[in-house]
Design a protein around this nucleic acid. Structure first.
Length: 319
DNA sequence: AAGTCGCCCAACCGCGAATCG
DNA sequence: GCGATTCGCGGTTGGGCGACT
């Protein structure tokens, strides 16, 4: 079965010859790629436009970076994948000279296995329960990640209208192998954690522009777990345009006194935080098993690491 | 040396979105 | 507004190649 776009044509398939490459390079260099569907004919190629486009984008474009991925690139891929999931094209935009196909292949052939070897689910970046772990002998690594439980850290909103949705965020406590913010690919954006808001429709929560790093310096790692990311259009539904002081309340109440990287164990299986002071919308109930402050760091800001309020948009729309 | 296996990656496939007429 | 076409993306496939037996 050929491409629909070229099913009527007789087109060559398979690997490109150097001659074909040369033809395509010469044509695109001279004329640009106005309309891919006409390029094969005009360039004298027995290929479909789609194939030409792919060949150009993935292999012939002059600014492509060749060679293996650096550690920095590796970190960026993991970080952005944690936030965006399998949005290879968007991930690739954070790696100049790399293509989505290249990133995807690198992920599937290399990074995926690396994460699995670390006991992490490559899709969710969550810890794989020991029984499911492919290696089965990484208990040391796991303990280093102080992962005492894989129970998702969940926030459910008490807002009445929001109750109906009963949307919850599964938060990933197991991201400690992830790089510190200083190595994060978007150093300009760290968590705007002071203002976030539960919303009563599609939006899960939002953050508003306000730096929060002074008093909550450990809030430098974040995650969207698969559950949240896999919610239909979660990222699209996440709006970042309203304000609320809930996190400020959080800072000042339960954990605010223990900021930093201190390993504060919070044992209760349910902690209830009243955000009403901030927004008069009632308490936020957090069901959890055991979590740590650092995990909290990872989890409360599920749309990534952002320093200013527009950063979510920045990340998402930079992509 | 020959056969098998597993990995990597270029290319293909199919779908949804965007654009065009 | 609608169907056709084109584009762009993510998932999948399969050929090439090195490692291993």
């Amino acid at each position: 079965m050929g491409h629909r776009c070229c099913s009527k044509q007789k087109v060559k398939r398979g690997l490109w010859s150097p001659e074909e490459d040369e033809k395509l390079i010469q044509y695109v260099t001279a004329h640009g790629h106005g309309c891919w569907s006409t390029i094969p004919k005009e360039a004298g190629l027995q290929r479909c436009g789609k194939s030409c486009r792919l060949r150009w984008i993935n292999y012939l474009k002059p600014d492509l970076k060749k060679g293996s991925f650096s550690e920095e690139e590796e970190r960026i891929i993991i970080d952005v994948h944690r936030i965006l999931g399998n949005r290879w094209a968007q991930i690739a935009k954070h790696l100049p000279g790399r293509t989505d196909n290249e990133v995807k292949n690198f992920w599937n052939s290399c990074l995926k296995k690396k994460l699995i070897a670390q006991g992490l689910d490559p899709m969710t970046h969550n810890l794989i329960p020991a029984s499911r772990s492919s290696t089965g002998n990484n208990s040391d690594e796991l303990s280093q990640l102080h992962c005492t439980s894989t129970t998702p850290f969940t926030i459910t909103s008490p807002i009445k209208s929001f109750d109906k949705m009963k949307k919850s965020i599964d938060l990933n406590p197991h991201l400690l192998s992830l790089p510190h913010a200083s190595t994060f690919p978007f150093p300009e954006i760290l968590p705007p954690v002071s203002n976030f808001q539960f919303k009563d429709s599609h939006e899960l929560m939002s953050f508003k522009d306000q730096n929060f790093t002074d008093g909550f310096a450990s809030l430098d790692q974040t995650n969207i777990s698969s559950t949240s990311l896999n919610q239909p259009s979660f990222m699209d539904d996440c709006m970042w345009d309203r304000t609320m002081e809930a996190l400020e309340a959080l800072k000042q109440s339960e954990v605010g006194h223990a900021v930093g990287k201190d390993q504060m164990q919070v044992q209760p299986t349910m902690c209830e935080m009243d955000f009403s002071e901030a927004n008069e919308k009632g308490p936020v109930i957090m069901e959890t098993s055991t979590f740590e402050l650092e995990m909290l760091d990872n989890t409360l800001f599920p749309c990534g690491e952002f320093r200013n309020g527009s950063s979510m948009e920045q990340l998402q729309w930079d992509c």
